[in-house]
Design a protein around this nucleic acid. Sequence first.
DNA 1: TATGAATGAGGCTTCATTCAT
DNA 2: GATGAATGAAGCCTCATTCAT
Lengths: 194, 194, 194, 194
Amino acid sequence: MRADARRNRERLLAAAEEVFAELGTEASTEEVARRAGVGIGTVFRHFPTKEQLLEAVLVARVAELADRAEQLTAAADPGRAFFALLDAVVAQARSRQTLSEALAAAGVDATAAAAPAKARLRAAAEQLLRAAQQAGAVRPDVGGDELMALMVGIARTAEQTAHDPELQARVSRLLVDGLRPAQRGSGSAPASPR
Amino acid sequence: MRADARRNRERLLAAAEEVFAELGTEASTEEVARRAGVGIGTVFRHFPTKEQLLEAVLVARVAELADRAEQLTAAADPGRAFFALLDAVVAQARSRQTLSEALAAAGVDATAAAAPAKARLRAAAEQLLRAAQQAGAVRPDVGGDELMALMVGIARTAEQTAHDPELQARVSRLLVDGLRPAQRGSGSAPASPR
Amino acid sequence: MRADARRNRERLLAAAEEVFAELGTEASTEEVARRAGVGIGTVFRHFPTKEQLLEAVLVARVAELADRAEQLTAAADPGRAFFALLDAVVAQARSRQTLSEALAAAGVDATAAAAPAKARLRAAAEQLLRAAQQAGAVRPDVGGDELMALMVGIARTAEQTAHDPELQARVSRLLVDGLRPAQRGSGSAPASPR
Amino acid sequence: MRADARRNRERLLAAAEEVFAELGTEASTEEVARRAGVGIGTVFRHFPTKEQLLEAVLVARVAELADRAEQLTAAADPGRAFFALLDAVVAQARSRQTLSEALAAAGVDATAAAAPAKARLRAAAEQLLRAAQQAGAVRPDVGGDELMALMVGIARTAEQTAHDPELQARVSRLLVDGLRPAQRGSGSAPASPR
DNA sequence: TATGAATGAGGCTTCATTCAT
DNA sequence: GATGAATGAAGCCTCATTCAT
């Protein structure tokens, strides 16, 4: 019985992530139930409130990012590792506001439920940041607060340009380049067309 | 009676801007009416649809920015002028997503109503951009598309940090610095990968 | 000034008849104003209530029919005259429920305003009926009440078949034939197709 | 729980029939809910649109009549059977336009939902008609189209006189008599002109 | 007197949440 | 535990009517 419940919970989370990404956070709870193949009652048994369901999705997203950040912590090249984290942010920003809302929640409005994931992400991200700064790959005048806010900004912008991957890549690079110390090469950037 | 109607229209627009900034775009039309001190019928007389009301607010915001951009066009220092536009974007990002949505609308989803304001903003912004690039104040590998997308990103990020002006300023500087050419400081940063 | 007012009243009545016939009695008062080329305020100055406007239209319709009935009163052949009235009913049933509602109002729900027109119609119709009965053109076992109810029925049915004039004619004849004494010829009726 | 739902559906249908008959088809959905003793949400769960609710009522009415017509198909006396169907039409015409609208829908505007019931009614009614015509009880120059239109006319007229059963009976007889062949009584009536 | 802007009650519909089965 | 029917608050919008100009 526990197994069933857990599987339902996971199916619900997956469905919710999909639905909210596709239709926005205003998508109905019924739609999530439908997509998960369960009754509406089951949704509310697992997540007594739509807000809690949303929260769970956001936490899962932040947790994925935190996982990635922690992995990168062990990487050889600190500069590469740090920017890889930012790449992960862009990569996650597939559609709609799900991720940016998740990060926003993690950054500012953090609810109790999001706190642990947020803390992990922040800790790992700061570690990556400091290492990259010591390696001279990132401007020294940047702190954890800026980094978190910037991640939200990157996510939001990436979502904004999700429809045009090329544009997304160019814009993301611009945003990220603000973090580099001077003398960064602009050579590999293609000339802006048009 | 034209006078009354116009005054009401303006009161409505102001109230709507306030309400949507404060409560998000899902705020109810009735709340706007209440805040404007008019009956709900009056809202719908001026804006037959909630969508049209929202649109009007967004258009007004974009138009303000377009005005500012056009002003700056006449400024002496192209670099300063360009970055002043980005400052204006940050300054307008009061709270919630109102502005970023406005810019997003201007950039991508532009409805017919927003088209003229969008076009003005884009034209003036591109003019500022080219001038700043010729003056060597901005990286040459940036085009209009990136600029518009970046403005959305800046707005979104600025909204995110609206609660903390200091942080907002620091983050905005980071974002904006990505646009500057490489002469900033010194360092051994690797060329922007990929 | 009186002339203006009267002309407006007439324009309004004509517009109302048109609008209600076209869109049904649920058409908005604004639509009537628009079609009449006057402001909404003017409608309500002339007809303080939508109901009163509707009533005026209905009264006008009944009055037309009463006029026709009174004309026919002077005709030579009583049988022809009587059935000509019923033809007039069919002919008026152009579209929507306007006429049948008018007649219904005249027959049953008659408001005070409709009373005079109703009385005229009923008086003339009964006169035609009696004359036709004396001439042997109509069954003797029919009275004024039946006649009025029948006229409503004919109108309603005619409206129902307004889209197909041939069908309308055939069905109307069936209904009307119920009033004739026996031995009526069915020779001139085309065989029902299909 | 299926049982509950079905019971509610039936209660709703009954309430809707009652309400629309009493107050006309413009009666509010909330009134139906109130009369059925359920919440407004329940109405919309069963009938996602007011139009669909209305449609369901009309279909039920037409279906009743179709049932009756099919029963009569097995009767011994074809003439009696046919006129019994018309009696059923009169009997169903309780008040307001509900039935006539139902028949009208069945005759002309038939929506997809009403199609099957309409087809059944029409098939059985035509069978009754043909049998009655072969038995010499009904004029031969009448077809299915006229019959359907006439049924609407009978219903409309009957509704009109619902307040006075005696009058209703007399008028209905008149209407129905139009269908009988010429052997009714005696008289010197002119052949139906035109 | 004509105009049309303002009003707000009321209608349809959606959706988070509860609860009987 | 799961289901899905029931609930009703709340949202958008329409329209008859009033009233300032």
